[in-house]
Write a protein that binds this DNA or RNA. Structure first.
Lengths: 340, 340
DNA sequence: CTGAAAGCGCTTACAG
DNA sequence: CTGAAAGCGCTTACAG
């Protein structure tokens, strides 16, 4: 690789000290205009780029944030990242983006690698597998700021950007009830995913409030394995009394359920009305179009970044970490419009 | 932030030199076992993490690669990134991942930011807007290795990971012809996107070879704006002689076209058979399921990373840059199965 | 307005 | 087997 130009090169050529070059480059006021101009001219000519590693080292700052999400291919995460990026860019931070592929091991290595002086803080959405939080506690002990979004850990007391999952699921379930569903099933995620549990709670509350009974046989736990979802759907609809409404914890799982129902010739929404979560773009293109809970992903990303920078800029403050809860919006489409 | 432990701290406490600590940490053979053990024990106790910035600075290596893609929310890119990540991880590299949102300006800033000593090389897929390549030429002048995938620039002579777009489009068009289509339209991307132009060429070749004439009225150029795609589709199907086959440059555009056709009550595949490109997961869940060209995204990512590392490890070699062309596979589904 | 010197946290010949 | 010293490319009191 061609030798990168350094301030030393510039200084030598101009017969001045590196300190002066450094000051000129950063446009510090004490530098004489001619000196500054000469430096800038040569810098431009030689295409000088400051070595950010060196700057970071002396400043003990990297202006870089580590972002760890389960999977970039999930539309939800890609979309939150846009918000994170936007805010980071506006505030002069860069991102180190990694994904765990839902594996705890990967999460661990990612956290470790990034915490070797590379990042000043983390924005994390936990992997599905994560039940041990030692790696996060270690960050806290080291005083490295951390913000969760969407998938958090109760026992880690840091700022969090969440949506009102209980309320959202309540509203979604309520919508099915209002459309005449009497026997509503819930296709949940893994039992250790908080988001799923919260949605389940909202679902149960809605049933209770409507005077419907909670039937544990109607609550099943899937994951991102399509085959598993198909099996669970089949089981639900082979019950003596099959459901006439279905709340699904995410669009991905809903798609699995729909394909299982198609095979069984169960009609949507006539035989079973469906609502799910995330409002991925595909909701509007599948048949029937899918009623889904939309989340303000871009704003969530911006907020997460914002909370993190507040922490970084204000490390000694002993304020209780903020938990921001965003409102959701139920996008009503064909899949839930059961004829009453 | 709590003061991070450094080798100096360890050295002082153990009454040895930092050089010895450094060697012990890296398990160099010349260190006496007892010394090494003592160092490692204390390092563990104090949760010492080497400051990677310092290491990078002295080694003049970052073991980090900059990856620039148009949009992480496109399934294709998220999917290639998995391959890049896999290979990077296996070879001890980290990634600095950025997206341009298809904006040339963003591409420029991303390249500039990352080239300040942060990365040892780039893997880039160009934004839709990019027609000026000065930022890339600057990388080349600085001797910073670069690899393209999918969206490249002809005039930049670096390793490239591509698919055989001409061949793929030929096969897709041929498939429509074999299914009885006589008048096949091509819904292309922007005129400056090479990938789109290559697919157009394959489409034209297939028509020629089948003795069908190329009608320029049947070739229209869209972009990722849904409304635009709908308009173009409407125009195509309001022609005196509307098409009975449609090759679409990507699944995203195909979805737009399909929704326009639905409004016009034009049946797929009975009235018009459709094939597109990318084989996104949604192809299997929309109605009708969409025939699409699948690309080996994971392998493409691995290969891109591999080519880049070869360059990094071997900077002086004057070999002609390799261009790797991957084969594609046409996944035949309902949308193209016109009854003959 | 400018320079010499120390230092950020490491690594690595060189010497012993 | 270990240490002193120089150096990676910067920044920043301190002195003049």
């Amino acid at each position: 690789m061609a030798h990168q130009v350094t301030i030393k090169d510039l200084a030598r050529h101009l017969n001045i000290s590196v300190a002066t070059v450094s000051r000129a480059i950063r446009d510090m006021p004490e530098i004489k205009a001619e000196t500054r101009d000469a430096v800038l001219k040569l810098a431009k000519e030689w295409d000088y780029q400051p070595n950010i590693l060196a700057t970071n080292l002396v400043k003990s700052r990297t202006k870089t944030i580590g972002v760890i999400v389960p999977d970039l291919a999930y539309h939800f995460f890609a979309s939150v990242i846009k918000g994170i990026e936007e805010e980071a860019f506006a505030r002069g931070y860069s991102l180190l983006l990694t994904q765990t592929s839902e594996l705890y091991e990967r999460e661990l290595t990612n956290v470790q690698n990034l915490s070797r002086g590379q990042v000043e803080g983390f924005i994390i959405s936990l992997s599905q597998e994560t039940t041990d939080y030692e790696h996060l506690k270690r960050l806290q002990r080291k005083g490295i700021p951390l913000v969760f979004f969407d998938r958090d850990a109760d026992e880690i007391d840091v700022p969090k950007v969440m949506v009102d999952n209980v309320g959202a699921a309540y509203e979604a379930t309520r919508h099915l009830i209002e459309n005449g569903c009497k026997r509503i099933a819930f296709l949940a995620g893994p039992t250790n995913v908080t988001v799923s549990n919260q949605r389940q709670l909202g679902y149960e509350n809605a049933l209770k409030n409507a005077g419907l009974k909670i039937d544990k046989a109607l609550i099943v736990h899937g994951n991102y394995n399509l085959q598993k979802v198909i099996e669970l759907t089949n089981e639900l609809f082979e019950l003596q009394e099959p459901p006439d409404g279905l709340v699904v914890v995410s669009d991905r799982l809903a798609v699995g359920a729909i394909s299982a129902l198609r095979v069984k010739k169960i009609r949507i929404p006539e035989d079973v009305a469906i609502v799910s979560f995330n409002d991925e773009p595909m909701c509007t293109i599948i048949t029937p179009t899918l009623t889904s809970v939309s989340q303000p992903t871009f704003e969530m990303g911006k907020m997460a970044m914002s909370l993190l920078i507040n922490q970084i800029d204000n490390l000694d403050s002993q304020l209780k970490p903020e938990v921001i809860v965003f409102k959701t919006e139920l996008k009503i489409r064909e899949s839930s419009m059961k004829i009453k």
